[in-house]
Simulated scan of single mutants.
Amino acid sequence: MGAGHGHRLHYHGHSRVHRAPAHRKLVVLLAFVLLVVATPREWFWAHAGYAALVVGVILAARVPLGYIARRMVVEVPFVVFAVLMPFVATGPRTEVLGLSLSEPGLMAAWALLAKGTIGVMSSLTLAATTEPADVLDGLRRLRMPELIVQIMAFMIRYLDVVTADLGRMVVAMRSRGVDPRSPRHWPALARTLGALFIRSYERGERVHLAMLSRGYEGAPRS
């Protein structure tokens, strides 16, 4: 994996969390997420303890909290959905700041926000303290099917390539007076994304043919 690929989430450091074996961190993350999901949503203090534990690990790894917070924007769609749940859910209603909200909807929104935020923070902590290549090696040690590991490796390798393609296409759109953020130009943005998908698919086929021509038989060759 070439330098510069797959390092957008990784924060370079030398803490004990960084040095811990990747396969152990993967097992701990999976067990922790399952524990958070299985915890009843009425156990508010338990969720607060989980969040404090994750923050403690982040501080122990010497990763700035702002570094993690900026990357939690991936959770925004779930936050929007959680905010809407008390308004659209059925069941008994309660008054909050003059608004009539569903009590089951409030509890569901709380559970989604709490469990989702803790899960995202945990995953970002793993990504910030573990190199992508180490994650792939950890998955192999955990007996993950080799084909899935290879797919993930190529996804990481070509993520920057696809992102760069999208950046160039957006620059071309703006130079032609198209604003991707404007609803008026969303049809043009949709066509651009479609073209990007086709281009990426064709690139994948060319890479696969090149691998076959070099003797690829379903497993990486060193």
Rank of each mutant, 00 (worst) to 15 (best):
M1Y: 11
M1K: 05
G2T: 12
G6N: 08
L9G: 08
H10W: 14
Y11G: 10
H14Y: 10
S15L: 06
S15N: 08
R16Y: 05
H18D: 11
P21E: 07
A22D: 03
A22Q: 01
K25Q: 03
K25I: 01
L26S: 08
V27T: 15
L29W: 11
L30G: 05
A31D: 09
A31K: 12
F32W: 15
L34H: 04
V36W: 09
V36F: 08
W45Y: 13
H47R: 00
L53T: 14
V54M: 05
V55E: 10
G56V: 04
V57R: 05
L59N: 07
A61D: 03
M72D: 09
V74C: 09
V74N: 11
E75F: 15
P77Q: 13
V83D: 05
L84W: 14
P86M: 04
F87H: 12
V96M: 08
V96R: 08
V96F: 15
L101R: 03
S102A: 07
M107C: 06
A109E: 01
A111N: 04
L112W: 07
G116K: 06
L124V: 07
L126A: 04
A128Y: 03
A128M: 02
T129Q: 06
E131R: 12
D137K: 10
I148N: 02
V149E: 11
I151N: 06
I151C: 02
M152Q: 04
F154I: 00
M155E: 09
M155C: 04
Y158W: 09
D160A: 13
V161Q: 04
V161K: 03
V162M: 09
A164W: 09
V171N: 13
V171C: 03
A172V: 00
R176E: 08
G177L: 02
G177F: 02
D179G: 06
R181K: 08
P183L: 09
R184E: 08
H185T: 04
W186S: 07
P187G: 07
L193I: 07
G194V: 00
G194I: 00
F197K: 02
I198D: 12
S200I: 01
E205F: 06
L209K: 07
A210M: 01
A210G: 12
R214L: 04
G215K: 06
G215R: 05
E217V: 10
G218I: 09
R221S: 14
R221M: 13
R221T: 08
R221L: 15
S222G: 13
S222W: 13
